[in-house]
């Protein structure tokens, strides 16, 4: 039961992370391959602030704000790039952030990571803290879901979709496309920061190796598998992927083969990405192509 709580918490955190990527990738058509950077910025900021005595609510707000600001800093120069160049720029951005985490040893303790990240008193630690943490995470995921749903169903959300389909059309309709895209990236980054914050306080130990290309691929897989550009898709994708990853641990594997599990899992993830692109690029839940204005 406790283990189920753990899986649910991790799935919910990834569902927040995947939804935030979906706002950029699914709704706006911005292929952000460095989304993990904002997750990492959120996690590190909140951890560092709370380790240095800042009250946790303030640390959380600071972390989300900083992730959003970092998003704006990335967005303003890179948004003039189109398609795959934007992808490369964001990927490189994430690598740079990773190097900063790794090498600024005075602040981040480098590869040793940050242990003993505090949690709010009323949640506590150990097994008894799992149900309250689950409630908090669920609340955060629900707020993310509702807010992002409102955003994407609003007129602003429709202009995001127009930009995705054809940016020139959006410009011709008098939309300030770079402002709209910047807002989307800032929002997406802030929610990614939120996911990072919850993750840091849940695991209570973070190190630079948690924020690599591998996690970017995992969250990309959640969005692509679930269905990009839909509200439920990334949530479903996150739950499927995390439950799949966790249930592999229950398969009885002789200890001499245990080292083959992680690479095989990686191969399966890569294979799913390729097959999805070949056979079902719309994901498990396809986006409705009907233009409706009443479901807001």
């Amino acid at each position: 039961m406790d283990y189920l709580y753990h899986i649910l918490i991790i799935s919910l955190i990834y569902s927040i992370f995947a939804q935030s990527l979906n706002l950029e990738l699914g709704f706006t058509g911005l292929y952000n391959f460095g989304h993990i950077a904002f997750f990492g910025i959120g996690a590190y900021t909140s951890a560092l602030l709370s380790l240095n005595g800042v009250p946790i609510p303030l640390a959380v707000i600071g972390a989300i704000t900083l992730a959003g600001v970092a998003g704006a800093l990335l967005a303003i120069p890179t948004l003039r790039l189109s398609g795959d160049y934007f992808g490369i720029a964001t990927l490189v951005f994430a690598e740079m952030i990773h190097l900063v985490f790794l090498n600024e040893r005075d602040i981040t303790r480098g590869p040793m990571g940050l242990p003993n990240i505090p949690r709010p008193e009323w949640i506590g630690s150990g097994i008894s803290s799992l149900p309250p943490f689950l409630i908090v995470t669920f609340a955060a995921a629900a707020v993310t879901f509702i807010l992002l749903r409102r955003i994407t169903n609003s007129p602003y959300g429709r202009s995001l979709k127009v930009i995705r389909e054809d940016e020139f059309v959006a410009q011709a309709l008098g939309k300030n496309t770079s402002l709209i895209k910047t807002k989307a990236i800032v929002t997406g980054s802030a929610f990614a920061g939120l996911a990072g914050v919850i993750w840091a306080h849940y695991i209570t130990y973070i190190s630079p190796s948690d924020f690599t290309l591998q996690e970017t691929i995992l969250v990309l897989l959640c969005v692509v598998l679930g269905g990009k550009g839909t509200h439920f898709g990334p949530v479903v994708g996150a739950f499927v992927i995390i439950f799949f990853a966790e249930f592999i641990r229950f398969i009885p594997i002789p200890s001499e083969y245990i080292r083959f599990v992680a690479p095989l899992q990686g191969m399966v993830y890569g294979f799913i990405l390729v097959i999805m692109m070949l056979k079902r690029p719309q994901g498990l839940i396809p986006e409705s192509r009907k233009f409706t204005t009443t479901n807001a």
Binding site: I217, P263, M267, L273, M277
Partner: peptide, 19 residues
């Protein structure tokens, strides 16, 4: 973009094949 995502997936698959 579909090709880009597919090539990321392929790269991940081949890299884990090495592992």
């Amino acid at each position: 973009i579909a090709i880009l995502i597919a090539s990321i997936g392929l790269s991940y698959m081949l890299r884990n094949g090495i592992r």
